[in-house]
């Protein structure tokens, strides 16, 4: 089959351009990958609800022609849970940042994963609070600098994909913007998974992270992501030889045996309708 070219414009709210993102920001690369995945799945735009929190990454929904909901900082999953429960037929896609999802929103993140509710979480991990000017986030690698960690962060950082997996997500994957084609394939898989899915997407923030950590050039940042990427299969082969700064990419969890939350609720409704007056 010939490869179909994606008409990005048909998914974009071009009248809302220019994008707020800085030159060299990786968020636009993620946005295009999301659109390729939606396009390949041939989903009607009316059937997609994109929800986000607050942050640079969370501005994504404003640019796409879906049902879009830009909520409060950290709470996107709570809003998305309400949407999904009332309209289980909609594809609910959530865009969030590392700070949004794992600091202020950490509680909603682990509980949505635990419920295995069918929401696809696309987490843009840039290791920093971009929007507010580069403060440390729970994902800032230990030792790295941030505006609130001028001597280097003395906190350990979260393994976000590991956190989602431990909390019960039925699909977990990681990728970086250095491999856009792989990104959209993983996003597609995540959207097709009936359950809570997380795709952790590493994306550079040259403005607030790179500058402080000897990588002000966005190209260097993408090169660095490429250099550090190790596929899951290769990481297994390497075992203890896996470099310390490696980013293990690919599918980490894929488990279709776990019941999905809104499905279980639908069964409850079915079981009760007529039974209780």
């Amino acid at each position: 089959m010939a490869k179909k070219l994606v008409n990005y414009d048909s998914y974009l709210r071009l009248d809302k351009f220019p994008l707020i993102w800085c030159p060299g920001c990786g968020d636009g690369i993620v946005l295009k990958a999301i659109l390729r995945a939606v396009d390949r799945m041939e989903i009607d735009k009316n059937d997609v609800c994109m929800v986000s929190g607050i942050g640079c990454s969370s501005r994504t929904p404003g640019y796409v022609d879906f049902n879009t909901l830009h909520t409060t900082h950290g709470r996107a999953l709570a809003f998305a849970t309400g949407v999904k429960m009332v309209r289980p037929d909609l594809h609910v896609v959530l865009v969030t940042g590392d700070g949004d999802a794992t600091a202020i929103g950490g509680n909603h993140f682990i509980h949505a994963a635990r419920r295995n509710i069918d929401i696809t979480v696309l987490l843009y991990n840039n290791w920093i609070y971009g929007m507010t000017g580069g403060q440390a986030s729970p994902a800032t690698p230990s030792g790295d600098r941030a505006s609130t960690a001028p001597f280097g962060s003395i906190e350990p950082n979260f393994d976000i994909a590991g956190l989602a997996a431990a909390a019960g997500a039925s699909f977990v994957a990681r990728e970086t913007v250095a491999k856009p084609a792989s990104m959209d394939k993983l996003i597609e898989k995540a959207m097709k998974n009936k359950g809570f899915s997380l795709v952790e997407l590493f994306t550079p923030c040259p403005t607030t992270y790179g500058r402080r950590n000897k990588m002000a050039n966005p190209v260097d940042m993408v090169e660095d992501l490429k250099r550090r990427s190790v596929t899951v299969a290769k990481a297994e082969r390497l075992g203890s030889d896996l470099p310390e700064d490696a980013i293990v990419t690919g599918v980490i969890v894929e488990d279709d045996t776990r019941p999905e939350y809104t499905d279980r609720y639908a069964k409850l409704i079915q079981q009760l309708s007529g039974a209780v007056k």
């Binding site: 996107a76 509680n107 609720y265």
Partner: peptide
Amino acid sequence: RFIQMEDEIGAMGSIIGASLAG
């Protein structure tokens, strides 16, 4: 539908999402 959320912040967010869904 009923859901017991993980906290009141989440509960409030969930009812807004649900209302937007109709």
